[in-house]
C-alpha cells in the first residue's frame, strides 16, 4: 500500500506529514483504510516492542500486534482526542497484554494487592543508572526473569518515560505505592543481575 500524503500546491514541495489526529479524522470522513495503514506504519514497531517486552514471546507478540491494531481500527470513532493517539494506543496495548498474561497464567491481578504496604519498603534504593547503563542484552535476560508486574512497571517508567502519576492512574494505585513498587522491582532486577553475572560483573 502507498503512503497517504497531504496535497501540496506544487508537485515539488515535499508533502508535510499529517498528524495522527488528522489521519483519524480523514479516515472517519472518507473511510479509506490507507489512512489507518499510515498510522500502523508509525506505531507498529513500538507496539511490537511493548508486546515482546511484556509477553516475552515473538510469535505471541506478532498475533497481539495484529489483534491490537484491529481493535484500534474498530474503535477509531471512539477516540476522543482527550489524550494523544499514542497514549491511547499504548494504553490499549498494555491492557491487551496484561489480559493475555492473566488468562495465560490464570492470575487475577498483575500487581499484588499488598503494593504499598507500610513497613515493607526496600532498604536500599538502587540508582536508576544501574539499570539504564546495563548492556541491553543483559537487561533483556534480567527482564525475562522478572515477574510480569515488576517488568511492566519498569518498562512503563524507563522505556515509555511514563510519570509516576500516569502509572498510578493506569493501575489504580496510589503514587506512593507505585514508587515503592518501582524500588522493589529495581532491587529484584539488581539481585537477578548479580545471580546471572556474578562471575562476570564488569560489562565488556
Amino acid at each position: 500500500m502507498t503512503e497517504v500524503k497531504t496535497s501540496t500546491h506544487s508537485g515539488t514541495t515535499p508533502a508535510q506529514k499529517p498528524s495522527d489526529n488528522e489521519l483519524i479524522a480523514r479516515y472517519l470522513r472518507e473511510q479509506n483504510p490507507e489512512y489507518f495503514t499510515t498510522l500502523y506504519r508509525r506505531y507498529a514497531g513500538k507496539v511490537f516492542a511493548k508486546c515482546i517486552s511484556m509477553l516475552g514471546d515473538e510469535a505471541l507478540a506478532r498475533d497481539a500486534v495484529q489483534d491490537i491494531f484491529i481493535k484500534v481500527f474498530l474503535n477509531l470513532s471512539r477516540f476522543s482526542e482527550q489524550s494523544s493517539f499514542s497514549t491511547w494506543l499504548y494504553s490499549i496495548t498494555y491492557n491487551f497484554c496484561i489480559d493475555l498474561i492473566r488468562k495465560k497464567k490464570k492470575i487475577s491481578v498483575i500487581l499484588s494487592e499488598d503494593v504499598g504496604r507500610i513497613g515493607d519498603e526496600p532498604e536500599v534504593d538502587v540508582p536508576d543508572s544501574v539499570l539504564l547503563e546495563m548492556k541491553h542484552d543483559r537487561l533483556e535476560k534480567v527482564l525475562a526473569r522478572m515477574q510480569e508486574g515488576d517488568r511492566i512497571i519498569l518498562l512503563m517508567k524507563y522505556m515509555d518515560d511514563m510519570s509516576i502519576k500516569d502509572i498510578a492512574d493506569f493501575f489504580q494505585k496510589t503514587e506512593s505505592a507505585i514508587k515503592m513498587q518501582i524500588m522493589r522491582a529495581k532491587m529484584k532486577a539488581q539481585t537477578i543481575y548479580d545471580e546471572l553475572y556474578a562471575s562476570d560483573p564488569i560489562e565488556s
Binding site: L132, M134, Y158
Partner: peptide, 8 residues
C-alpha cells in the same frame, strides 16, 4: 544512555 531504549 538508556539501555531500555536500546532494547526497544
Amino acid at each position: 544512555n538508556n539501555s531500555f531504549k536500546d532494547l526497544e
